[in-house]
């Protein structure tokens, strides 16, 4: 995702969530979203199969 694409996504996603972003907050939001996207890419690159389901509760 280019920076322009990222900004376009952020503005659109914020609109979908009815989450206004003040102009003075936008640079910080962009920076943080870029970091999050970089972190998420490492997880998204990992190959999982259909049987790899979330298992949120650990049983004794």
């Amino acid at each position: 995702m280019t920076n322009d694409e990222m900004q376009t996504y952020i503005v659109a996603a914020a609109a979908a969530l009815e989450l206004p972003i003040a102009p003075e907050h936008l640079p910080g939001v962009l920076l943080n979203f870029e970091r999050l996207a970089g972190v998420a890419a490492a997880v998204n690159d990992f190959a999982l199969g259909p049987a790899d389901e979330p298992g949120p509760v650990w049983r004794p």
């Binding site: 996504y9 952020i10 996603a13 914020a14 910080g28 939001v29 920076l31 970091r35 999050l36 998204n44």
Partner: peptide, 13 residues
């Protein structure tokens, strides 16, 4: 700003 950015994370991630 981190909270706002994080709120926009796609469900797929």
């Amino acid at each position: 700003d981190r909270f706002i950015a994080n709120a926009l994370a796609p469900a797929a991630w």
